[in-house]
Amino acid sequence: MSGVEGSTLTDVAFWVVSILAIGAAVMVVTLRDIFRAALFLALSLLAVAGMFVLLRAEFIAVVQVLVYVGAISILIVFAIVLVRDIPGGGRENHLYIPAATIAALVAAMAIFVAFKTDFTDLDRLEADNDLVAYAMTETYNLGDGSEVVLPETTRGGTEEGVFSNTTGTIGGLFIRDFVLPFEAVSVLLLAAMIASLALLRQRGQAS
């Protein structure tokens, strides 16, 4: 990934993945057959995992495939098979017009805020500043190597940027800065697991 060619390739990949994710999500909420809707949900989640790869979050992409595509989709398919309620399918209730209005308003508001806010953009900051300054930095260099001129130490071979070693950084953060949320999430998952088992235990069944 270097220069203009790499960035246009990334753009094309981004739009393909975005259209796939949005199209599959639309199929999920419009299809009548709930089983097919679950399969399209898996496709949408997979497309979002591809988007994570493009956003330099490889670890999250792997977690997405493992947890969402691998576990949650299968769980939903299992639930649909257990609760075979085809006539109920994917029907809307009688309030679907207000629901569509509210959803459209919320999305429009989010889009408006996204385009009107002046974010301090990493790429723009890099483009505005003198790139010679990078040659002086020794430890890391800001940028992912696709859009900026890299200093001598990092030009060939390995990409040394902010996002060059996210998995290691995330692992370090889990056991240092985020250790309390990490433990809280483990307790949450344990509680959810025990609660699911307790709910689904048949009454009067021998334990």
Partner: peptide, 30 residues
């Protein structure tokens, strides 16, 4: 691929999900 474009996709996905959560009858669909 700019921040605004990614946020656009995110907002559209959120809107689709919100519509489904509000309008669907089936609990699994929600």
């Amino acid at each position: 691929m700019t921040l605004e474009n990614v946020l656009l996709v995110s907002a559209i996905l959120f809107g689709i999900g919100l519509y489904g959560a509000l309008a669907k009858r089936n609990a699994i669909m929600v």
